[in-house]
Design a protein around this nucleic acid. Structure first.
Length: 892
RNA sequence: GGGCGAUUAGCUCAGUUGGUUAGAGCGCUUGCUUGACAUGCAAGAGGUCACAGAUUCGAGUUCUGUAUCGCCCACCA
């Protein structure tokens, strides 16, 4: 056993143990080692990411699950990696280029990609190194990246399979377009926010109509008027019956457009007449198809007005909006402007207002993929924790829309579709590897689609692509489906749902058996932690100022299942203080252990030497083990953390360690040896239970305390097994003894209350006499008398079956019987009598005054109610004080 | 517009199938350099469990409604 320094130094211990664990290969898993598999794939952080509290919580939970399973002997793997984060990463590199005065358009696609790869090589590992600081037991040998060779092969394979099954198609549809990133986005990538906008009412004159004959339409985006190709009304709307078949003249433009009838139009909203812009609105697009209308795109890629906008060409969309409104006003065509709340889509990467826009893109047909994913949940093939996410998942799945997967950026997996450019061929095909000729005509003249795939198109394959798919590797066979997925609910649509669909489609089974969705980490005002708000707490700062263990423990202890967690820096004191407590408890034990630690592998206790207190703490340990198992199984990680704290601090330290001081400082070597055996047993097992949350501190103590006799490292130590009552009894641990100690602790607590009630200073000794409830208790307590003395701060503690006090004595009824307190023999009785008498007289006088005041009708009626209330409280207080003083005086 | 979550001590939150006296941490009050630990020990104050009904012998817990806050989803221009 190593002598422990006065305080623990996490800064030295954490890197040391982490490096050692990695060198020893404890985190590396191979199917060939056999056993039952337990697997988790990490939600891959973006390569652009830096560690934040959300990661810290997410990773800590996964590490708890993984470390416990490993200790339980499962063949455990935790696959780490990063996501190439298409748009996000491209943006980062483009910003870097901008600082150098360049844009990607100044260079070739190849050169730009070289820049991105160079950036990735330099910074892409940052987040993974930060994860190591948390103590995560990932199998780093298996680290993957969504753009590495194997995963790219998986992407191409999946694309081709879906393409060949006609589940991927290209089409011209309205998509969400980010004019800043210059790319299409999926519906999920467009974040809707309510904004205060306007509803402009615009007059559309009727062609060849009477003077001023017109239709008034309402719109929130007047600039799209330039692309209008009709005005629609509801066929049942009487007001517009006479407009049937008429033609309108588009304001400012002069183009002639028809009036159409479509039941999509709600007569109740706006004016009941809708301008139809098929190229810039999804509903209008649908109407356009129904009525065979032309689509006129009036904007460029970066949301400026294009040549179709006539005189407005070149203007930014919002500048154009202003100008159109002004021009309409000048022409007398603007009827009115109403304020209007409506949801506006924003790019999830750069927050620019998304423009709905007609554009040729690639899509995945989702309905056929969703059906099995719905069934899988209903059949219980996987489950969500907490269960309430079932509904969210099903709602989305049942209303799923096709997934726009093409992005007009360069960083990502390029769409593996080729088009033959040979004269008269034009064949289009998808290929897993770069082709050298057209499979139809043999021409070598062909081109690849310029777009890349949505970054989530590689993420949705993560649980099997990281295990080697499309190769049928041993790892894939052994570890798939994975056991648990731990993530935050904000990517349930982006990622979780799609992984389930992909798993079922390509592997024929769900990707994981259970999804635990934890809460969001917020600041103490309930705001999401974000860089821009400046309210984030950097986990690395917490690790520096406290420790990784303190960070992990605090986060887990404070997060109830699936609830959001509110964090401020002080909260991490919880974990730090607990760590210190554990350190000191171990140090105390080490200081009192002569030589090496006793055999803790499978200690056999001597029933003859085992006291009730020994039995009690061992029984409690086993209750704790059972509780830990139950809490972890049910994802109640906060209860798990708090159960250990409660046991270790308040049962082991507050009671058992205090109790152990008697044998330690006494002179019964057999007793001392037995207590040491118990304490090392308890500590070694408690460290195991705590290890998944506080890996570093527990390893440090495991080594220093010499528990390596059990296992080389606590990482691979066996997880304790809870013994039931019968098994405990076989070890000499009886429920009666345990119940007795509970009663003893309650009794000591009540005795302390008694001391405090009568104002005894801690240094003030007193005698206690117990009149036990029955003979059995009498025998038990008599044998144990000495153990009570330090807790009671007493010199004498007597047990008397028929104790009848000669005079009134302070007493309390306890689970063991009635407990009397006596000061006789501990104080100068005469002096104390005098002092108490004086105090009693003073108190009685004040009580009398207060009582009189309260009997005074004037006082009651005229004083403020709170003053009267105060007086009543004071009277009660004085009555109690007087009674106590009287009892104490009488007892002397 | 639809859905979900929250509302319990000064603050932040637990409270697992309904069951004596509703818990914890922090903060606060009082007292302690008690031979591991002041990052500690002992004692204490503090709650009409958001509101209104209903079910029940019994409700913080179940049901209905209301209010406030937060989140998610949504193609009414």
């Amino acid at each position: 056993m190593t002598e422990l320094p006065k305080s623990y130094d996490p800064k030295a211990a954490e890197p040391k143990w982490y490096q050692w664990w990695c060198e020893k290969g404890f985190f590396h898993a191979e199917p060939s080692k056999g056993g039952k598999p337990y697997s988790i794939v990490i939600p891959p952080p973006n390569v652009t990411g830096i560690l934040h509290m959300g990661h810290a919580l997410n990773e800590s939970i996964q590490d708890v699950l993984v470390r416990r399973r490993r200790m339980q002997g499962f063949n455990t793997v935790w696959v780490p990696g990063t996501d190439h984060a298409g748009i996000a990463t491209q943006n980062v590199v483009e910003r870097k280029l901008k600082k150098e005065g360049k844009t990607r358009w100044d260079m070739s696609r190849e050169d730009f990609l070289k820049e991105v790869w160079a950036w990735k090589e330099q910074y892409g590992g940052t987040i993974l190194n930060q994860l190591r600081k948390l103590g995560n037991s990932c199998d780093w040998d298996r680290t993957r990246f969504t753009m590495d060779e194997g995963l790219s092969r998986a992407v191409a394979e999946v694309f081709c399979r879906l393409y060949d099954k006609k589940l991927i198609y290209r089409g011209n549809y309205i998509i969400n377009w980010c004019p800043r990133c210059c790319t299409a986005l999926s519906d999920e990538e467009s974040e809707h926010e309510d904004e205060a906008g306007h509803l402009w009412h615009i007059r559309y004159p009727v062609k060849d109509g009477r003077k001023n004959e017109c239709v008034v339409v309402a719109t929130t985006r007047p600039e799209t008027l330039l692309g209008d190709t009709a005005v629609a009304v509801n066929s049942r709307d009487e007001r517009y019956a006479k407009l049937k078949g008429k033609t309108l003249v588009l304001p400012l433009v002069g183009r002639e457009i028809p009036v159409i009838e479509d039941d999509y139009v709600d007569p109740q909203f706006g004016t009941g007449a809708v301008k139809v812009t098929p190229a810039h609105d999804p509903n209008d697009f649908e109407m356009g198809r129904r009525h065979d209308l032309p689509s006129i795109n009036v904007m460029t890629d970066d949301a400026k007005m294009n040549e179709n906008a006539g005189p407005y060409a070149g203007l930014d969309r919002f500048a154009c909006r202003d100008k159109i409104v002004a021009d309409l006003q000048a022409a007398g065509l603007l009827v009115k402007v109403e304020p209007h709340q409506h949801a506006v889509g924003h790019c999830y990467r750069c927050h620019t207002v998304v423009e709905p826009r007609l554009s040729p893109q690639w899509f995945v047909r989702m309905k056929p993929l969703a059906r099995p994913a719905i069934e899988a949940l209903k059949e219980g093939r996987f489950k969500f924790v907490p269960e309430r996410w079932n509904k969210v998942y099903l709602e989305w799945m049942e209303n799923i829309r096709d997934w726009c997967i093409s992005r007009q950026i360069w960083w990502g997996h390029r769409i593996p579709v080729y088009t033959c450019e040979a004269e008269g061929c034009g064949h289009e095909w998808a290929a897993r590897t770069a082709p050298d000729r057209c499979p139809k005509c043999g021409s070598e003249k062909f081109r690849q689609d310029p777009d890349v795939l949505d970054t989530w198109f590689s993420s949705w394959l993560w649980p099997f692509s990281t295990l080697g798919w499309p190769e049928q590797t041993e790892s894939l066979k052994f570890y798939y489906p994975t056991s648990d997925l731990v993530t935050a609910p904000d990517i349930i649509f982006f990622w979780v749902s799609r992984m389930i669909m992909a798993g079922l489609e390509f592997m024929g089974d769900v990707p994981f058996r259970r999804v635990y969705l934890h809460g969001t980490v917020r600041d103490n005002q309930g705001r999401k932690m974000s860089k821009s708000l400046g309210n984030s707490i950097d986990p690395l700062d917490i690790i520096r100022d406290f420790s990784a263990d303190a960070l992990r423990f605090s986060l887990i202890a404070l997060t109830a299942t699936g609830q959001d967690v509110y964090i401020s820096k002080e909260k991490f004191e919880l974990g730090r203080n607990f760590g210190t407590k554990i350190w000191n408890a171990a140090r105390f034990l080490q200081m009192n252990t002569p030589g090496e630690a006793p055999d803790v592998r499978a200690p056999q206790f001597d029933p003859a030497l085992l006291t009730a207190d020994d039995q009690h703490i061992i029984a409690r340990l086993h209750r704790l083990i059972a509780a830990c198992d139950e809490h972890i199984e049910r994802c109640r990680f906060n209860d798990y953390a708090k159960a250990i704290l409660e046991f270790f601090w308040h049962e082991y330290c507050d009671w058992y360690v205090e109790y152990a001081k008697q044998p330690f400082y006494g002179n019964d070597p057999a007793r001392k040896a037995e207590v040491l055996k118990v304490m090392h047993y308890i500590l070694s097992r408690a460290l195991c239970l705590l290890h998944p949350i506080m890996p570093f501190l527990t390893e440090e103590l495991w080594q220093d305390m010499g528990y390596t006799q059990i296992a080389e490292s606590i990482v691979v130590a066996p997880w304790p097994k809870a013994l039931d009552e019968e098994e405990l009894l076989a070890q000499g641990i009886s429920p009666e003894a345990v119940a007795y100690v509970d009663a003893k602790h309650a009794t000591i607590g009540l005795a302390r209350n008694l001391r405090a009630d009568y104002g005894l200073a801690p240094a003030q000794t007193a005698d206690f006499i117990l009149r036990p409830a029955d003979a059995a208790t009498a025998a038990r307590v008599s044998a144990d008398r000495a153990a009570y003395l330090p807790h009671l701060r007493a010199e004498k503690f007597e047990v008397e079956m028929d104790y009848a006090p000669a005079k009134a004595m302070p007493s309390v009824i306890t689970p063991l019987g009635t407990l009397f307190m006596s000061l006789a023999g501990h104080i100068d009785v005469e002096a104390e009598k005098k002092r108490l008498s004086e105090q009693l007289a003073k108190t009685s006088q004040e009580l009398e005054n207060t009582s009189k005041r309260l009997e005074n009708v004037n006082f009651i009626s005229r004083a403020k109610p709170e003053v009267v209330e105060q007086a009543r409280a004071r009277r009660k207080e004085l009555q109690e004080k007087r009674d106590k003083l009287a009892t104490l005086l009488e007892s002397l």
